[in-house]
């Protein structure tokens, strides 16, 4: 493989890294509070707001059930508003993040539901406020599960970023389509797939390791 192709591969990898890193970061920052909100406002939970919970759940489901390709196109005006453009790596981050937020929300909600109700009760018996229950009990106890969820989200984002790349976002997916497919260079396609596999493995292993380290159950 020529040095030019190798440097192209490197640049594409960095673009993927940026897309996944940025959208993953945004999705984490918004998705965790969203997941908390979904969990604690559920009927019977510490801040039960059944009607609000139902509406929030519907919105989350609506975004989650929209196919990514359609979502990407549908929010182009919003993307342009934020990034000033609708193509390129930066523009791909917006739909990626928006698709990932409700995904993280549900995964975090699931992790929080795993926390034994007895722990919440014990904290209430100690005179904990709902906020203290969230910060001292719910989040620390479900941190390993939340980390597992974030790992799943990152791995999915790597896949979705390849799709975003194909419509002008750059990155490994873009490279694979343009060189591997359109110019018929199977060795480029092979390299792209290999790099993606190693990347996913790495993310998964790091996530598993961290989650295991934090879990004392």
């Amino acid at each position: 493989m020529s040095p030019e192709l190798l440097s192209l591969l490197w640049d594409s990898f960095i673009e993927t890294l940026v897309m996944v890193g940025l959208s993953g970061g945004i999705a984490t920052l918004i998705g965790i509070p969203l997941g908390l909100l979904l969990a604690v406002t559920a009927p019977g939970h510490i801040l039960a707001r059944p009607a609000f919970n139902k509406i929030l759940g519907l919105v989350v489901n609506a975004v989650r059930s929209t196919p990514f390709i359609i979502l990407m196109v549908a929010i182009i005006p919003f993307t342009r508003l934020i990034t000033g453009t609708s193509i390129g790596t930066a523009a791909a981050v917006v739909p990626l993040a928006i698709a990932a937020i409700p995904f993280v929300g549900r995964l975090v909600e699931g992790a929080l539901r795993e926390v034994d109700g007895g722990l919440i009760e014990a904290a209430q018996a100690m005179g904990a406020t709902p906020m203290q229950i969230i910060t001292k009990v719910l989040v620390p106890e479900s941190l390993p599960g939340i980390l597992n969820g974030l790992t799943i989200m990152l791995v999915s984002l790597i896949g979705f970023s390849a799709m975003a790349g194909a419509v002008g976002g750059g990155g490994l997916g873009d490279l694979g389509i343009r060189y591997g497919y359109q110019r018929f260079m199977p060795e480029v396609m092979g390299m792209v797939v290999l790099v993606l596999i190693v990347f996913v493995q790495l993310v998964q292993s790091c996530g598993d390791w961290l989650s295991r380290r934090l879990n004392h159950r």
Partner: peptide
Amino acid sequence: LRAARREIGMIFQHFNLLAN
């Protein structure tokens, strides 16, 4: 009530300790 609960300790059948 939260302040009053600090004067009432409670222990449980399944201990309810924080695992982490």
